[in-house]
Structures are given as structure tokens and as C-alpha cells.
Amino acid sequence: MTVQVRIQNPQRFAAGLIFLAIGAFAMIYGSRYRMGSATHMGPGYFPFVLSAIIALLGLSSALTSLAPAHAPRPVVWHVIPLICILAGIVAFGLLVEHAGLVLAIAAVVMLGCYQRLLSRPWEVLVIGIVLIGMSVGLFIHGLGMPWQALPS
């Protein structure tokens, strides 16, 4: 007779696996730091114990998710907004130092509103211009932040 194990709560199962992976990774990576003893803790002692706790908690939540639980909510993954918004934030970081605040903000708005850029380009344009005007006025002229507005 075979016993069928079903994952009753896939979200908790996935979260458990993530914690297990993070804990195990930190234990292995952290083993390069000196452990020391409880009295004279080295830099590796506290993180090692902590990583072990995280790994154990992850393991236990992955295992308990196999037990019957109430039906989980179906999860929708919105991948396109995720990628666009993350790209916008990273673009801000890449641009702000050398290309200046104006281009950096333009990049955030364009990438962050990528989906609407196709359907309502004017709205996005107006939002972008207003935000650029406000930010340059407030931060560079108003607060005197040492940032450049335009590429030098």
C-alpha cells in the first residue's frame, strides 16, 4: 500500500523551502567566520546559531504544510509589473549619479508605467513632467541636495 503525500498548503511549503535554503546557505557561507565559544563568541557564533534556527523553522513549516490544512487562497503572480517596477528602480540608481535627476526620474516613470505607456501615453507624459519639475524644484533648488539635474 502506498501512502500519498499531498502538499496541502503550497505557499507555506514554498516559504519553508526558501527559509531552509537561506538558513543552510548562511550556515555554510558563515562557517568561514571564527566560531569561538559561548563565553568568547567569535564573529561566526551568533549568525551560525541563527541560520540553524531559520533552517529548522523552514523545515518544520515545509513539513507541516504536508498536513491537512484549510484550502489556501489561489495566488496570482503579476510578473510584468514586478519586472517593470524593479527595472525602473534599478534604472534610477544607474542614472541618478551621472546622467542626473531628470533622466533618472524619466526612467522610473516610463518603466514603472510601462503598461500604460501604450494605452495612455499622454497621461504618463504629464505625470513624468510634473514629477520632474517638482523634484528638481524641491530637492535641488529647495533643499540644496548636491545632485545634478542634467547630464554633465
Partner: peptide, 22 residues
Amino acid sequence: PAVLVFCCIGVYSVSNATFDVY
């Protein structure tokens, strides 16, 4: 979009470090 922009600026302004934005 305003939230995104002002949060980027806020994070960057703490120590003018692009690393913080990433």
C-alpha cells in the same frame, strides 16, 4: 508613479549612495 519617484529619491538621499537604491 509619484510614490516610486519620491521613494527612490528618499532612499538615495540617505547617504547619496546608488547602492542603497539597488
